[in-house]
Design a protein around this nucleic acid. Structure first.
Length: 549
RNA sequence: GGCCCGAUGGUCAAUCGGUUAAGACAUCGCCCUUUCACGGCGGAGUGGGGAGUUCGACUCUCCCUCGGGUCACCA
């Protein structure tokens, strides 16, 4: 009887589960190798939490000489967007994450455990569903959405657990011949699992992050195949992760509540369960309270936000690693230049409560990351960012490549590296005043400090120009600056001034500030000697001249 | 509401029954310094509440409280 029903429901399915078991044999990998997967829905953008998970997938596979593949979970046509697969692949590539197997574009894939796009695996899911129906472990359900709503309402009124189970599972109670008849009549249906669970029994489950968790068994006759013939997440998860021979399922903690169901599915299907690593949700501080970071409200929920703001991918990943394993931070401090692969991720060290995304901390991580880059690299990556988000700046950088790199190289070498760039967007403020095109067109208020008298400023500049030689070494340069200071009644040394503040008008710093502001229009700049040298005498004269009326 | 998870400074967190309760970011002060940044030193700031267990509890147990997740033909 059941066989007849199964054939009727799935007339085109001629394969058996055994066929697929043989088609996708156990992977031949070294002991301990982890097979992980990133399994997103192509809904249009990459969430920071997805990036967090994908990074973990990649790291774990790498450090165990395993495999990390990409599976596309497109079983819900309603939420899908065009080109969703490419958005995912390219979005992750930006952060340096690529896959060994799986979808590589909308039309191609690689690897021998495919198809890796769920909508193309319909026959596989149906084959297993058919087998379940045959064995009396699944059945067609003809309830309409309205009927289901009515059941739920009744349950809510009775204050009992909602869902399709027990006495509420009306179609479960249909006789096989009744089912056959209704299928024959062409009534639409879904396929439900005939749950063998009992509410009074408990299951124990081990998660790498949370340890052992106890749940009551699943009793819900959940839908495994929807009316469009595609599987639900739960069914696809069991079948795909089994057939693709996943060893470690890494997914967000929102899935832990469906563990009883998944345990049951694996059992009914006769599959061995993989290990699970349920990762914490990344949270957002919302006026003092914690909430899940939301793609609607929070721009920083999108992974692309970080790239668009000019935060290097290494910094984003490093920050995520900090959240992942808190010992990463110390490791990174000791190994600022080491590749990520040298850090061993420990799944047990993952925190089980969701961390607040801290953009300020990210900026600090990023600042340190950029401090390890050469001027050439800062130039290249900064330019690449500017080409997309600040074309005026990009134009300037390209017009004066050597000048720009020279500036970027100031205080970039040696042990005390300048850390004033935390994102490429900072480059605008760091560079623009050094280009004459901007300097002479943009209004800027000269923030003179101690010396504000125009005539004195002019005198100082004039005197300075008389002794300035762009070929001087730093000591000579500074000595000359001190000479000028002395000439105008300012102490050569700050210390002298501090000792006897009444004997001087000020100190050498006041003089250098005049030169700095006259030259750049601002008080905070990198080392003045280096800047002056790069700018050269001609440019300095031109800039000083603007103060003449 | 049921089920599950969690709770250490503003944030990320270490400790795994005995500690002056690490460290990082942020913040404040000082020092270094021709400005800024860097760097150095220091300060302030933490175990949600209540019962137990124990010679001893941040650590173990229970209750409360609070936070989070989940209860779809979405993943």
């Amino acid at each position: 009887m059941s066989k007849e029903l199964a054939d009727l429901m799935f007339p085109n399915i001629d394969k058996t589960p055994e066929y697929y078991e043989e088609l996708y044999p156990k992977r031949n990998l070294p002991e301990g190798a982890m097979v992980t997967r990133f399994a997103p829905s192509p809904t249009g953008f990459i969430h920071i939490g997805s990036l967090f998970g994908a990074n973990l997938d990649r790291r774990l596979a790498d450090q165990s000489n395993g495999v990390c593949y990409l599976r596309i979970e497109d079983t819900d046509g309603k939420r899908e967007i065009d080109d969703g697969i490419n958005v995912i692949i390219n979005g992750l590539k930006v952060f340096g994450i690529e896959f060994d197997e799986g979808a590589v574009s909308e039309s191609e894939e690689k690897g021998s455990y495919g198809p890796y796009i769920q909508s193309r695996r319909k026959d596989i899911y149906q084959c297993y569903a058919k087998s379940l129906v045959e064995r009396g472990l699944a059945y067609p359900c003809f309830c309409t959405p309205e009927e289901l709503d009515a059941i739920r309402e009744r349950q809510e009124k009775l204050k009992i657990v909602p869902g399709y189970y027990g006495e509420f599972a009306t179609c479960r109670k249909l006789s096989v011949s009744q089912m056959i008849e209704r299928v024959k009549n062409g009534e639409p249906y879904v396929v439900r699992l005939k749950s063998p669970g009992s509410m009074s029994k408990k299951i124990r489950f081990k998660d790498a992050v949370r340890g052992v968790i106890e749940f009551p068994e699943n009793v819900q006759d959940i839908v495994i195949i929807k009316s469009d013939g595609l599987p639900t997440y739960h069914f696809a998860h069991a079948i795909d992760d089994h057939l693709m021979r996943t060893t470690h399922v890494i997914r967000g903690e929102e899935w832990v509540s469906s563990i009883p169901l998944h345990v049951q599915l694996f059992e009914v299907l006769g599959f061995e369960m993989p290990e699970y690593i349920h990762t914490p949700t990344i949270m957002k501080d919302d006026e003092g309270s914690k909430r899940k970071i939301s793609k609607r409200k929070d721009p920083e929920a999108a992974a692309s936000y970080y790239k668009d703001n000019g935060i290097p991918k290494e910094a984003v990943i490093d920050y995520l690693m900090n959240i992942l394993n808190s010992n990463f931070e110390n490791w990174r401090k000791e190994n600022p230049l080491a590749p990520l692969s040298e850090f061993k991720v420990d799944p047990h060290k993952i925190s089980s409560s969701g961390a607040l995304l801290d953009l300020v901390k990210l900026a600090d991580v990023s600042k340190n990351t950029i401090a390890t880059f050469s001027a050439q690299r800062v130039y290249e990556e900064g330019l690449a960012w500017a080409e997309e988000f600040d074309t005026e700046l990009a134009g300037l950088m390209k017009r004066y490549p050597d000048y720009t790199k020279g500036i970027l190289n100031i205080e970039r070498t040696g042990t005390k590296v300048r850390k004033d760039i935390s994102k490429w967007a900072d480059l605008r403020d760091n560079l623009e005043y050094l280009y004459d095109e901007v300097f002479f067109t943009k209004e800027h208020e000269d923030e003179w400090q101690k010396i504000t008298e125009a005539s004195e400023i002019k005198e100082i500049l004039k005197a300075y120009l008389e002794v300035f030689d762009e070929n001087d070494d730093k000591d000579t340069w500074f000595a000359k600056m001190k000479d000028v200071s002395e000439k105008f009644g300012y102490a050569r040394e700050v210390k002298d001034f501090k000792k006897n503040p009444d004997s001087y008008k000020g100190h050498v710093g006041d003089i250098s500030t005049v030169i700095r502001v006259a030259l750049t229009g601002r008080r905070n700049t990198p080392d003045l000697y280096e800047i002056l040298k790069l700018m050269g005498r001609e440019r300095a004269e031109k800039r000083f001249a603007r103060l003449e009326d």
